[in-house]
């Protein structure tokens, strides 16, 4: 069943014709060509596909594009103000060596921002480690990701984002 779908992605109105079964992540990657959002496990375990829908983090591999009709979607591509100026959380990952191969990083960053906002910037190591239950990384052992998010939380608060 082909349907039309319209939503806002990173502040821009977008629309397309999709099959009902098209996942949000497929719509982003294959219809809009925005490949920053990754597909890792495709079973809602790994979190590589995390985006924000109406302000909260969701796994875009487990949501239909048509379910996002009328929603505001933010992907990793929508965070940085410009190519020169990264979002404070992205910058924190860079500064703290919070990635190795980088495959999980878009999802990690999107989950981290939602986590920090949900706790009103007051995150602890314990909150971060529990808060990352839905994101898998096979390179880092998580240590530098946790470090990055703790630093990113402070930077977000200072920047007021």
């Amino acid at each position: 069943m082909t349907m039309s779908v319209a939503m806002t992605v990173n502040g821009k109105a977008v629309s397309g014709n999709v099959e009902a079964r098209t996942l949000l992540v497929q719509f982003l990657r294959e219809h809009l060509g925005m490949t920053g959002t990754h597909v890792g496990c495709d079973t809602s375990q790994c979190g590589a596909c995390v985006v924000h829908v109406d302000g909260v983090s969701v796994k875009a591999c487990t949501m239909l594009a048509v379910q996002a009709e009328g929603s505001k979607v933010t992907t990793i591509e929508g965070l940085a103000a410009s190519p020169e100026k990264l979002h404070p959380m992205q910058e924190a990952f860079r500064e703290n060596h919070g990635l190795q191969c980088g495959f999980c990083t878009p999802g990690m960053v999107m989950s981290a921002i939602d986590l920090v906002k949900r706790h009103n910037y007051a995150v602890t190591e314990e909150i971060v480690r529990h808060g990352l239950e839905g994101n898998l990384c096979r390179c880092t052992g998580y240590h530098n990701i946790v470090k990055s998010i703790l630093a990113g939380a402070q930077a977000m608060k200072a920047a007021g984002v």
């Binding site: 809602s44 979190g47 995390v50 909260v56 983090s57 969701v58 796994k59 487990t62 949501m63 989950s111 939602d114 986590l115 949900r118 808060g131 239950e133 839905g134 994101n135």
Partner: peptide
């Protein structure tokens, strides 16, 4: 329940 993203949906 589940993880943060599952709880959001």
């Amino acid at each position: 329940i589940g993880d943060a993203q599952v709880r959001n949906r």
